[in-house]
Amino acid sequence: MTEQTAQPLDETVDDDRRNFIHIATGAVAFGGVAAFAIAAIDQWNPAADTRAASSLDVDISKVPLGSEIRVLIGGKPFFLRHRTPAEIAEAEAVNVENLRDPETDDERLRPMQDGKLNRAMLITSGACTHLGCVPVGPAQGNTGEYGGWYCPCHGSEYDTSGRIRKGPAPKNLPIPNYVYVSDTVVNISL
């Protein structure tokens, strides 16, 4: 090696800053940190046991006519309502175009294994679309003005198809992912 360089160190360093090797090293190091960040962020997602608890087989044969059962799946409430013929007729008679969130009653049902709709059984989410309160229904003796559900928090009224008819809620009660495993058992998943 030659004797000590006399020029100030900072200049030589600055000249060198754009050298390919430094850029490559920096990029690869950043890539590694980013890859680790993926693991550190992915762990916020639901764990496998939480996901396993997010699906439930429900026996619908025990739902009393004209009333409902409520189930919790992964901590979220769902309504399974056994509708009377009068309630079904009421739900189908509504003029969809006048609704805040236009949906026909058929659109809010899922086919059974033979492809037909089970009109007697309405399955909806149990969380009001306004701010997430759980509406009261036939089991609590209050079905609201439209015969479906009534949310006591801010007065949203749902009809017998779970559609929003009055009050602050913007949307109908959502229909969860569910399939008929058999004529009497539905599998609801989040």
């Binding site: 762990q43 764990a47 496998a48």
Partner: peptide, 28 residues
């Protein structure tokens, strides 16, 4: 600490849960 359960009934199982069920829990 987001996944651990400081309880004599659940501590051991919660550590194993981290190793099995939490995404990338085994790595962390």
């Amino acid at each position: 600490a987001m996944h651990y359960e400081p309880n004599v009934n659940g501590a051991f199982a919660s550590v194993e849960r981290i190793m099995r069920d939490v995404p990338f829990g085994w790595l962390l």
